[in-house]
Amino acid sequence: MAPQDPLSIRLVTEISRLEGVEPFELPPLEDYIDTESLDNLFGRPDTPFYEGEVRFRYAGYDVTVTHAGEFDIS
C-alpha cells in the first residue's frame, strides 16, 4: 500500500490485513459509501476542507475518515 494509492484502496487494504483475507474477499466498499466522493473529498492533499470527517460502518468495523485523509478503524 503506497501513500499515493487512493484513500478507498488504502482503507480496504488495511481492513483486509486486519481480517487476514485478500481485499477482494471483503464486500465492495462501494456498497457502503460513494468511494469516488470519499477519495475526492478526503483523499487528496489539495482538499479544500480544513475540518471535517465522515463516519460509516464497513465489514463489521466503524470507520472514521478525517479531512486530512487519515482513517481510524475500530
Rank of each mutant, 00 (worst) to 15 (best):
E19K: 11
R44Y: 03
I33C: 05
T64I: 13
P27Q: 07
V21G: 02
Y32M: 04
T64Q: 13
E22Y: 05
L41N: 12
P6V: 07
P3G: 07
D31T: 05
Q4P: 00
E22D: 13
D5I: 04
R57M: 09
V21I: 14
E19I: 00
H67I: 13
L18T: 09
P6E: 01
I9W: 02
E36T: 05
L11W: 05
V21Y: 04
E53I: 02
F42A: 13
D31A: 08
L7V: 06
L7M: 09
L11I: 09
P48Q: 14
F42H: 11
A68M: 15
E51W: 08
V21M: 06
E53K: 14
P48S: 14
S16W: 03
L26D: 05
T35Y: 01
R17W: 09
L7E: 02
I15A: 08
N40F: 08
F56C: 11
R17C: 08
I73A: 12
Y50K: 13
A59C: 02
E25P: 01
R55L: 06
D62P: 01
D31P: 00
S8A: 12
H67Y: 15
E19G: 00
Y61L: 08
S37V: 10
L38F: 08
V63F: 11
E14G: 03
E19T: 02
G60M: 06
G43H: 03
Y61H: 14
D62W: 08
P45Q: 09
T64W: 03
S16N: 07
R57Y: 04
R55F: 03
Q4G: 07
S37W: 07
T64L: 13
I15M: 08
P28Y: 02
L41C: 10
A68E: 15
I33Q: 08
R10H: 00
V54K: 06
A2V: 06
P45F: 07
T13G: 08
T66K: 14
P27C: 01
T35M: 00
T66P: 11
R10K: 13
I33D: 01
R57Q: 13
P28S: 04
E36F: 05
